[in-house]
């Protein structure tokens, strides 16, 4: 289980950096969704099934949609 943890944690740091690095905000929102799914996997592995379920529904689903809805109504490019 330790190897699983290491892989997910490395991916977590990479996706977190990537979500903040890309200049296209739509891609940033989608990468943020991937980040949420990785966290959800981590919680499922820890035995926190209820929390993992909530994160899968909320973080990966609804909050990405909220971000995309805002990006759609504002600018898609970001300066940094």
């Amino acid at each position: 289980m330790e190897h699983f943890n290491i892989v997910i944690l490395v991916l977590l740091v990479i996706t977190a950096l990537l979500a903040l690095r890309v200049k296209d905000l739509l891609s940033a929102s989608m990468i943020f969704g991937i980040y949420s799914f990785l966290i959800c996997l981590l919680w499922a592995e820890m035995g926190a099934v209820d929390v993992a379920f909530t994160e899968a529904a909320v973080g990966a689903g609804v909050s990405a949609v909220f971000l995309i809805a805002t990006v759609y109504n504002t600018k898609r490019r970001s300066s940094d």
Partner: peptide, 21 residues
């Protein structure tokens, strides 16, 4: 089983969001 008001509510809300999308 895993679940409850918060999760079910979010999924039900997401289904209406999907109609909109």
């Amino acid at each position: 089983s895993p679940g409850g008001g918060f999760q079910g509510g979010v999924i039900l809300g997401a289904s209406f969001i999907l109609i909109g999308l």
